[in-house]
Deep mutational scan, measured.
Amino acid sequence: MTDQQAEARSYLSEEMIAEFKAAFDMFDADGGGDISVKELGTVMRMLGQTPTKEELDAIIEEVDEDGSGTIDFEEFLVMMVRQ
């Protein structure tokens, strides 16, 4: 866990972390443990947004600390705390 990830967790109660985990699992449609650009786009479109591929890439790049091209749960928490 990076310093950013530990800091993000410090702002959240266990209840909030559990709620974010449920949301993360909804995004992680294939159950792979991370959110891909495609999965992020699908959920955002379900919520009425129309992000471009470039916008989706930028969202993932902003929090993808390990350079995997996807968002894992710890990175997702950082993203949610920043919102």
Results as ranks from 00 to 15, higher is better:
Met1Gln: 03
Met1Phe: 02
Met1Tyr: 11
Thr2Leu: 08
Thr2Cys: 01
Asp3Trp: 05
Asp3Thr: 09
Asp3Gln: 11
Gln4Pro: 03
Gln5Pro: 15
Ala6Gly: 13
Glu7Pro: 12
Glu7Val: 12
Glu7Lys: 15
Ala8Trp: 10
Ala8Phe: 02
Ala8Lys: 08
Arg9Gln: 09
Ser10Glu: 11
Ser10His: 09
Ser10Thr: 12
Tyr11Asp: 03
Leu12Val: 06
Leu12Ala: 03
Leu12Met: 08
Leu12Pro: 11
Ser13Asp: 11
Ser13Pro: 09
Glu15Asn: 15
Glu15Pro: 04
Met16Tyr: 04
Met16Leu: 11
Ala18Asp: 15
Ala18His: 03
Ala18Glu: 12
Glu19Cys: 04
Glu19Tyr: 07
Phe20Asp: 01
Phe20Thr: 04
Phe20Lys: 00
Lys21Tyr: 02
Lys21Gln: 04
Lys21Pro: 00
Ala22Arg: 14
Ala22Thr: 09
Ala22Ser: 15
Ala23Trp: 06
Ala23Asp: 00
Ala23Leu: 04
Ala23Glu: 03
Ala23Gln: 03
Phe24Ile: 02
Phe24Glu: 01
Phe24Ser: 00
Phe24Thr: 00
Phe24Gln: 00
Asp25Gly: 05
Met26Arg: 14
Met26Trp: 04
Met26Thr: 15
Met26Lys: 13
Met26Asn: 14
Phe27Ala: 09
Asp28Thr: 15
Asp28Leu: 04
Asp28Phe: 02
Asp28Arg: 12
Asp28Val: 10
Ala29Gly: 10
Asp30Phe: 05
Asp30Gly: 11
Gly31Phe: 05
Gly31Met: 03
Gly31Ile: 03
Gly32Glu: 12
Gly32Gln: 09
Gly32Ile: 15
Gly32Trp: 03
Gly33Thr: 03
Gly33Arg: 02
Gly33Ile: 00
Gly33Pro: 02
Ile35Gly: 00
Ile35Asp: 05
Ser36Pro: 13
Ser36Phe: 06
Ser36Cys: 13
Ser36Val: 03
Ser36His: 04
Val37Arg: 04
Lys38Asp: 12
Lys38Arg: 10
Lys38Cys: 12
Lys38Thr: 13
Glu39Gln: 12
Glu39Asn: 12
Glu39Val: 08
Leu40Ala: 13
Gly41Cys: 05
Gly41Val: 04
Thr42Phe: 03
Val43Thr: 02
Met44Tyr: 06
Met44Gln: 02
Met44Ala: 03
Arg45Trp: 05
Met46Arg: 09
Met46Phe: 07
Leu47Trp: 01
Leu47His: 03
Gly48Pro: 00
Gly48Asn: 04
Gln49Leu: 09
Gln49Ile: 08
Gln49Cys: 10
Thr50Cys: 15
Pro51Gln: 04
Pro51Val: 05
Pro51Lys: 10
Thr52Cys: 12
Thr52Asn: 05
Thr52Tyr: 03
Lys53Glu: 15
Lys53Phe: 03
Lys53Asn: 09
Lys53Asp: 11
Glu54Ser: 14
Glu54Met: 06
Glu55His: 07
Glu55Val: 10
Leu56Gly: 01
Leu56Lys: 01
Asp57Asn: 07
Asp57Pro: 04
Asp57Gln: 14
Ala58Leu: 11
Ala58Gly: 06
Ala58Trp: 05
Ala58Gln: 11
Ile59Lys: 05
Ile59Trp: 09
Ile60Ala: 08
Ile60Asn: 04
Glu61Asn: 15
Glu61Gly: 15
Glu61Ile: 07
Glu62Ala: 11
Glu62Pro: 06
Val63Lys: 15
Val63Cys: 08
Val63Trp: 14
Asp64Val: 11
Asp64Ser: 14
Glu65Tyr: 01
Gly67Val: 08
Gly67Lys: 12
Gly67Tyr: 01
Ser68Lys: 14
Ser68Tyr: 07
Gly69Gln: 12
Gly69Asn: 09
Gly69Glu: 06
Gly69His: 10
Thr70Trp: 04
Thr70Gln: 11
Ile71Gly: 00
Ile71Gln: 00
Asp72Ser: 14
Asp72Thr: 15
Phe73Gln: 01
Phe73Asn: 00
Glu75Tyr: 04
Glu75Ser: 12
Glu75His: 10
Glu75Leu: 09
Glu75Met: 14
Phe76Pro: 00
Leu77Gly: 01
Val78Thr: 14
Met79Trp: 03
Met79Tyr: 11
Met79Arg: 08
Met79Glu: 05
Met79Asp: 00
Met80Arg: 00
Met80Ser: 06
Val81Ala: 04
Arg82Lys: 14
Gln83His: 14
Gln83Asn: 05
Gln83Arg: 06
Gln83Val: 15
Gln83Glu: 00
